[in-house]
């Protein structure tokens, strides 16, 4: 039975990659020109302005941040934003993964249309998103709003509305991360699991979830960054009811227009810091993805 030819002790790379070639030498002037152009463009458009916010925030040391955190409005707005973001992320996690599975693994009429519609929240004006939700869920004249209000659930001008608006805007992020990974994975492994006796639930948890784990993590982090900062849609849905439903980005606007610029910069800095932190987390996680 033992056959010598099968005793390959040295694992071979099944997909030998071409050795990475150094970039082809271009004309140095062109290379440097492009490099400089790109760096300058990004510096003036993104880096410098962003760093100025940090500078303005810390113009007086930590006083700015301290002062902002002493303001109960700020604390309330940050808490609200945090809660909303977490809720929206959880909703998008469940439905995002569900819809990604639906789009990749099942065939049904209207799939192409649904696929195209997934991107709508990314390209629709946040104001339109807010308006749309108001029209349906408003307690006064919405389609479902009055009935929901009758059930004791106020959506618009309250937390559920803010969460819905945020979930709407961030919905594609999880789906768009998970779909390509699912497609790439194929359903071979899932079929193999089924032929070995696993039921749908076991297949999902033991095979599918480990396969899309990292994609889900990126999706969630991006979703979190986006959810914390959503402004337009939330503003429309939250209305101007004052402190109760003011999220952090709305507070920035209010404080800035009330000439409390230091507070505005401080809150902005915290939001920006959270966003950049999310990006760094994603950037650090990416290389850990198992290479194919």
């Amino acid at each position: 039975m033992a056959s010598a030819v099968l005793e390959e002790t040295r694992p071979r790379d099944p997909h030998p990659r071409a050795t990475p070639r150094p970039p082809r030498e271009g004309h140095p002037a062109v290379t440097w020109g492009l490099r400089l152009l790109v760096v300058a463009y990004l510096f003036f458009l993104v880096v410098w302005p962003t760093s100025l916010v940090a500078k303005n925030t810390f113009a007086n040391g930590f006083d700015g941040i301290q002062g902002a955190l002493d303001d109960p409005d700020v604390v309330h707005a940050l808490t609200l934003s945090g809660q909303v973001a977490v809720a929206a992320v959880l909703i998008n996690l469940v439905f995002g993964v569900g819809m990604a599975l639906l789009l990749v693994r099942f065939d049904f009429p209207g799939k192409r249309v649904l696929n195209a519609l997934i991107d709508v929240p990314l390209s629709v004006s946040p104001v339109v998103v807010g308006l749309a939700l108001v029209l349906v869920y408003s307690g006064r004249y919405g389609w479902f709003g009055p009935w929901l209000e009758g059930q004791g659930l106020q959506v618009v001008f309250a937390k559920p509305g803010i969460i819905m608006a945020t979930a709407f805007v961030a919905l594609p992020l999880v789906i768009r991360e998970v779909v390509p990974v699912l497609e790439d994975m194929g359903d071979d492994q899932e079929q193999a699991a089924r032929s070995l006796g696993a039921n749908a639930w076991q297949t999902f948890w033991r095979i599918t979830v480990p396969g899309i784990k990292w994609a889900v993590v990126y999706g969630v982090v991006l979703c979190l960054a986006r959810s914390l900062g959503e402004f337009g849609a939330v503003k429309v849905v939250a209305g101007n009811v004052g402190g109760e439903s003011t999220t952090a980005p709305m507070l920035v606007q209010q404080k800035y227009q009330n000439f409390q610029q230091e507070t505005a910069y401080s809150v902005s800095f915290m939001l920006a810091f959270a966003a950049v932190l999310c990006l760094i987390v994603v950037a650090l996680l990416r290389p850990k993805e198992p290479k194919k």
Partner: peptide
């Protein structure tokens, strides 16, 4: 630089406005 590209996407829009206003 690669990270910087994503900043406008991740930054809350209101903060983006403030950021540009700063410069």
């Amino acid at each position: 630089l690669d990270l910087v590209i994503d900043i406008p996407f991740a930054l809350p829009t209101i903060v983006a406005g403030l950021v540009l206003l700063a410069l």
